[in-house]
Every structure is written in structure tokens, then in C-alpha cells.
Amino acid sequence: MMLQAAAFYILSAVAVLSAFMVVAAKNPVRAVLFLILAFFSVAGIFVILGAEFLAMILVIVYVGAVAVLFLFVVMMLDIDFAELKQGFLSYLPLGGLVALALAAMLALVGFTWTMSDTASGHLQAPMPADMTNVEALGAVLYDQYVLYFQLAGLILLVAMIGAITLTLRHRPGVRRQDVGKQVGRKRAEAVELVDVKRGEGIG
């Protein structure tokens, strides 16, 4: 129990600190690396909660794909981050005010939740005891919430249609791959055998 608590506090501290560094770091590459560290610590917290599958997914999807993609984008795009961050301090009072309001709201909600007689009764066990992680997730996603799962798929379809409709332009004069033409090509069209005399080259 002691060990678990210690692990929790260490992981949470690392997660919060690295999340702060994501915003504070001057070098964008470092910011992304801190983001990866934050993901790792959160994955550790998931393991403590007994949600191993989610922890692995977090590492594979977020660290393996999303964060690496971020890294690519940050390195490929020539963005002057120093210039982007110039106005940072001037927005600080307003941003701080918003953050303060948000913190106050959260505190109020937390306070109400602790005081309420009924709310804590709604705490649900995240894991059914007689199932593995994957089984439990599958039962929720593909059985209980199958309708929502399909709807989410349709939403992604809409996003895809939108991206294509709003950005795709067929330019004339662009050479495209024509598989049928490529495959149907005869040897006679593609290859020409030339007898080259020694020492003369093709002229």
C-alpha cells in the first residue's frame, strides 16, 4: 500500500511538472519531449488503477503515433516560436484571471461533491471483478454502446468528406498513376534493344 501511494505521488508530480513544462519550454522540440514524458507518467497512473490495456494504448497511440507526429510537424514546419510567444506576457493577466475563475469553479464543484450525501454513492467501480480489461472494454464499446460507436464512425466519415470537399482541387495537367495502363504495357513499347558498337556509344 505504501509503495502504491509513493508511486502514485511520484507519477502525478512528474505528470503535472512535465505538463507545465510543455507550456513553459522555450524550445518546441523540448515541449514535445515533455509531452511524451507526461503521457508516460499518466500511463503509469493507469497501471496503478488496474487499467493495463488503457495504459498500453496510451503509450502506443499517443507516444508512438501522435507525439511522434507532433515532433515531425514541429521540425518540418518553419515556425518562429520565439515570435509566436512574444505576446505571452501581455496575455498573462487576462489568462490568469480565466484560470483563476476556472480553478474557483472546480473548487466549488469539488466542495459540493464532497458535501453531497448522494453524490459519492454514484462512484462506480471502474473494473468488473470477473473480467479482463479488454473484455470489459469490449462489452462497453461493442455491446452496451454499439450505437454510439457507429455514430462516432459516421462523425469521422463526415470529417473525411469535409476535408476532401474543402481542400481537394483537381489540377489539369498533373500526371496520375494509371494502373491499368502500367500493367497493360507490352515489352515492345517499353524496351528497345540497341546494338552498340564497341568504342562508339549511342549517338
Binding site: 459540493t112 461533491w113 453531497s116 448522494t118 453524490a119 454514484h122 462512484l123
Partner: peptide, 26 residues
């Protein structure tokens, strides 16, 4: 969801009838 314990409308109605606290109003 935090204060009613469910996202289902019927369950929320039960929770709201039992205890309409500040969290639910929020």
C-alpha cells in the same frame, strides 16, 4: 454525470428528484 452517477436521462431524473444539489444545477 459526476453528481447523478449516470448519463442516462431516466437515471438523471431519479437523481435530480432525490437531491437537486449545486453540482447538478451547475
Amino acid at each position: 454525470y459526476g453528481f447523478a452517477g449516470s448519463t442516462n436521462f431516466d437515471a438523471i431524473a431519479t437523481a435530480a428528484a432525490a437531491d437537486a444539489n449545486v453540482g447538478l444545477i451547475f
